[in-house]
């Protein structure tokens, strides 16, 4: 399975993502610059974390208007899997590939810690290797992770089973509505999540429970670690 990682000026989690995808899939991902208007054939396109454009205007706002985003939109429309982590999630909401918005953390502070994540929907294209209700640890590092959607949108997201992950056991670090940590689009092929599964794939990370997301998305048979 082939993957691509999109690079924006100010991304800083791209290397972790490249490393994770390389280790899990056995093949280095294609690297796609934000001005590119062509994405190599990919089964999974990843928008990594960081601070694209210094978070100027709003987190992800300027990156979401980059030339490469039109290509990501076309790929998503064709059913290719797209995953945004942290700033990548913010970019995908700003680009309206995912509903809602990510606002300043309710506590106003940047949070960098490990939270507990509940796999709310284990039947998505990104969570098939988990059990419904399974709780995994996962690192977060963000200032704007406070997911918000208006009542009608929120109801639709919940009713459609679009909530992939929730913060569990009172570990919501940012005040996000309904403890939402990650959502998919209606078609189910676009995932956005604030936590960083790419930082939970090796024993030295303190756990490997993040692998399942990549293995599900890339349709790789679960390793013994998943």
């Amino acid at each position: 399975m082939k993957s691509s990682v999109i690079l924006f000026p100010g991304s800083n989690r791209d290397r972790d993502m490249i490393s994770a995808l390389t280790k899990i899939s056995g093949t280095a991902p294609n690297l796609v610059w934000h001005t590119d208007t062509d994405i190599p054939d990919s089964d999974l396109i990843v928008v990594p974390g960081g601070f694209s454009y210094g978070d100027y205007l709003r987190s992800g706002a300027i990156a979401a208007r980059s030339p490469v985003m039109d290509e990501i939109r076309k790929a998503a429309d064709k059913g290719i899997r797209v995953m945004g982590v942290c700033n990548g999630f913010q970019i995908l909401t700003e680009a309206q590939l995912l509903p809602g918005a990510l606002m300043r953390n309710a506590g106003l502070r940047f949070v960098c810690k490990t939270v507990k994540l509940e796999v709310t929907n284990a039947e998505t294209q990104f969570t098939g290797q988990y059990e419904k209700g399974q709780i995994i640890p996962c690192p977060v590092a963000h200032h704007d992770g406070n997911f918000f959607a208006e009542a009608d949108d929120l109801k639709r997201i919940e009713d459609n089973g679009q909530v992939a992950f929730r913060y569990a056991d009172g570990t919501n670090p940012n005040g996000s509505i309904n403890d939402i940590a990650g959502i998919i689009n209606e078609a189910g092929n676009v995932l956005g999540m604030m936590p960083h599964p790419e930082n939970l794939i090796e024993p030295d990370h303190g756990g490997q429970q993040g692998r399942g997301i990549f293995e599900s998305a890339l349709e790789i048979v679960a390793s013994e670690a998943a």
Binding site: L57, I62, R65, T93, E94, G100, A101, F148, E150
Partner: peptide, 9 residues
């Protein structure tokens, strides 16, 4: 509509 405001919020 396109950039200055995020009309979701």
């Amino acid at each position: 509509e396109k950039l200055l405001a995020n009309t979701v919020i």
